[in-house]
Amino acid sequence: MAEQIPLVDYLVLGNDPHLVANECTSCGARFFDRRNACASCGRSGFTKVDIPTEGEVRAFTIVAFAAPGVPTPYVAAMVDCAGTSVRANLINIPADPEHVSLGMQVRLTTEVVGTDDEGTEAIGFGFEPKEA
């Protein structure tokens, strides 16, 4: 099996792929990026927290026109995972407004998004409908 690397460092691969956030130990604000301090309270203590892998689509768009090299159409969305908002594509679903809806229940899944010169696969994530 090819070596794998997550597309972003807040995606944890393995048997139960999931996202992990930096949670402020003072106010509980959550962030997915590398932090210098907390944007909510200004303190600098963080702990890693696992983000639930199921959620609800709070907003979406179907991008039909993108920068050169970016395949279209794709569904970009904001998914509410039990109180933590996550930015992701909706995948394994036709990219049209008949199939995608606000309030849709979705779950996290992973997919290969590319392979480098050494054969290492980049693994990305997206959300798919809970009811197939």
């Binding site: 997550p6 597309l7 590398r34 768009t61 993108a66 920068a67 794709y74 970009a76």
Partner: peptide, 22 residues
């Protein structure tokens, strides 16, 4: 975000028409 490849279009969208659509 420790990304190994571009994320626009793979993890949501950066284009303004898509951001404001959402």
């Amino acid at each position: 975000y420790g990304a190994v490849a571009p994320v626009d279009g793979r993890i949501g969208t950066d284009i303004m028409p898509g951001v404001f659509a959402q």
